[in-house]
Design a binder for these strands. Structure first.
Lengths: 166, 166
DNA sequence: CTCAGTGCAAACCGTTTGCAGAACG
DNA sequence: CGTTCTGCAAACGGTTTGCACTGAG
């Protein structure tokens, strides 16, 4: 029940946020929040809707979108975009979200990895461009080990030598 | 006219690609390609449509999308997604496209920067996860120097201490 | 002459919005 | 009780698709 206990704690935090903003704490908002905090996946809105339906909750999609806005604004949830044509959401409960992803272009699987070099890169652009970084996102696209083992190789349907413009 | 000369060269390459694929070389395809190769910006489809209209060309949006598909498949053009809700396109004419971007969350401006560390990071994930990288994308979000000078500071509308779940 | 491409408009799909009725404080 | 939220359905905006017509090879 550790997971549940922690989840309840964050829901309390979310409620505090709503109170701070002078917004009503509603059953629907807490049900959506519980679904997001109860999963460690990168959830799409359809994923969330499915989870709610499986739990016997019937909540309109508009309410899910509106609640996700609040969760993102409260900084308890992170919005992700893997270029799939829709957004995904991840809670920031147990750890800082990792923004480094390995995206397999064959099977679509997304794995996370840590990269200490990112701090150095951020410090360098801050110094060189006077840019003040707040967050980042690093995605490396390629073929995961499983797909390589299944015989997949990077696509070669482009021009043989596209940069020879002579 | 160096720019034009190079652009014509790439259009020749594009035509070679079409021939290789057994696809007709049409006026519309070359007009769209010329617009993309004639700009060094990150172009949206609306940008491209506007450029064509300014040049007196009237080409359906569907044809622009279909031609961009071909340009991307030929590897002469790169598809970008900055999470704006639509795609952008950049030619790979004069250089390998730089996939490291500084995105200002205040004014929306996107600047590019180089990062030699990326090669080391890719080599490390290849070794550690058996992942075979083909390309990557690094985006650092924050406040650009101009917006800082104008007095913008990072937003603080989230919870004061979101991760204290006690 | 034949087959693929084009343009238009409709379809699509994730997301947003307007509004009547329900719920929080 | 007043104000905000909810659910539904319609609107929205970028992208895709179906189909009659045009044009490339």
């Amino acid at each position: 029940m550790t997971q549940t206990a922690t989840r309840d704690g964050v829901i309390r935090l979310f409620n505090r946020y709503l109170r701070e903003q002078g917004m009503p704490i509603t059953q629907q908002r807490n049900v959506v929040a519980a679904a997001v905090f109860g999963s460690d996946e990168h959830l799409s809105v359809d994923d969330i809707e499915r989870i709610l339906r499986e739990n016997g909750e019937r909540i309109g999609k508009a309410t899910i979108y509106r609640t996700l806005d609040l969760l993102v604004k409260s900084r308890l949830v992170e919005e992700l975009d893997f270029g799939e044509g829709f957004k995904r959401y991840e809670h920031r409960l147990t750890r800082q979200p990792i923004h480094q992803h390995l995206v397999c272009t064959a099977c679509g699987n997304v794995a996370e990895f840590e990269s200490g070099e990112m701090l150095a890169i951020e410090a360098r652009v801050a110094r060189r461009f006077g840019f003040r970084p707040t967050r980042h996102r690093l995605e490396i696209y390629g073929i995961c080990r499983a797909c390589q083992d299944a015989g997949v190789t990077p696509s070669t349907e482009g021009l043989a030598c596209p940069i020879d413009t002579a």
